[in-house]
Amino acid sequence: MAKKILIADDEANIVASLEFLMRQKGYEVRVAGDGAQALAMVAEFAPDLLLLDVMMPQLSGYDVCQRIRALPDGQRTRIIMLSAKGREAEVSKGLAVGADAYVTKPFSTQDLVARVAQLLGE
């Protein structure tokens, strides 16, 4: 059974690229346009991995990550944070709220795909 991946980002073009990359690897992909939607879909879709943008309307990536980790089975989902903010402090904050990895935009597609596979234990 294919692993499930949820993409949460409000930049349509970035979502498009991520969606293409993940589907190409055979994962089952869903998309959320903002933080609140992402939270809802984590509960409903139960993704194995979440590609999470930091700067989103309504609920930031940090908040989303924190709330997922606070859920009863919140540790199950791997989380990769994506952000155009690459300063040291922001990376540490991302890891501190429970992300498994922090990838700075713009990213190398090959590296990202490899990172996803690694986190999914493949």
């Binding site: 970035i14 990359l21 700067m55 903010k85 935009k105 597609t109 090959q110």
Partner: peptide, 25 residues
């Protein structure tokens, strides 16, 4: 500066990702 950087990186992310996709596929 930090905000400008962020704003510059966002379009750059799409450009790089699709360029690589086009290149690799």
């Amino acid at each position: 500066v930090s905000t400008v950087t962020h704003e510059l990186r966002t379009p750059l992310t799409s450009i790089r990702a699709f360029s690589e996709i086009l290149h690799d596929n």
